[in-house]
């Protein structure tokens, strides 16, 4: 599938109807999702015929995209039931058939039953800016524990040196494989500007 076609499909996917601030529900823009997924597949063959996990999937932009790019199965996990209802609609709309949804807390210890199970873990984790500092790193670490190959994750570029430090501590390898711009529409009341451009890195972490 060509990048433009993928982006076209993802552009028609519904987002959060009422984003919840406690979960930092920022949508993954379709352009970012398309470029990120396309890079994973074309450069690293990380999606086609792979066992994929989308951690904190929300309405499923990454899940649907991964499935469209030929994933073997996608397990989509989120704590918020309303987002998963939208994902369900998006799955029907996109006509993909191999996304398995589970409502649960991705950071709960029971997730360790899936240790090293997934080939590829994709995520656009909460940035950890609203009273839950560090949650992005917890997502990343859990993603690593559940994958036997690699984790692809979106992070604000301002956190780059911090992530580099953590990667060293964890004893894994990682690098930024794409630099993207995230046009964040003001989705919450406390946002003063109408929209804001944020530099975002697509990281690839893998077990050495």
């Amino acid at each position: 599938m060509k990048l433009k076609v993928l982006e076209g499909h993802l552009g028609e996917i519904s987002g959060f109807t009422k984003p919840k601030v406690e979960y930092e529900q920022y949508e993954t823009p379709s352009h970012i999702a398309a470029v990120a997924l396309y890079t994973m597949q074309t450069q690293f063959e990380a999606l086609e015929s792979k066992l994929v996990l989308d951690a904190g999937c929300g309405p499923g932009m990454l899940s649907c995209g991964a499935s469209l790019l030929g994933a073997g199965t996608v397990t989509a996990v989120d704590i918020d039931g309303e987002s998963l209802d939208i994902l369900k609609e998006n799955i029907e709309f996109t006509e993909v058939d191999n996304i398995d949804i589970i409502q649960c807390n991705f950071l709960c210890p029971e997730m360790y039953r899936c240790e090293n199970y997934f080939d590829t873990v994709v995520m656009n984790p909460p940035f950890g800016t609203k009273n839950n500092a560090g949650i992005d790193m917890k997502f990343l670490k859990m993603g690593l524990d559940l994958s036997c190959d690699s984790v692809y994750s979106l992070h604000k570029s301002t956190t780059r040196s911090h992530i580099q430090k953590r990667i060293k501590e964890w004893g894994v390898k990682g690098s930024v494989i794409a630099e993207l711009r995230y046009n964040l529409k003001s989705s919450f009341k406390f946002h003063k500007q109408h929209s804001k451009d944020i530099a975002v890195d697509l990281w690839r972490l893998h077990h050495s």
Binding site: T73, T75, N98, D100, I102, C104, E110, M111, R113, C114, Y117
Partner: peptide
Amino acid sequence: MLTSKCLRGVVTGYP
């Protein structure tokens, strides 16, 4: 899909 609903039960108690 049974893949994740039972195999590696994502919850307390298994299977």
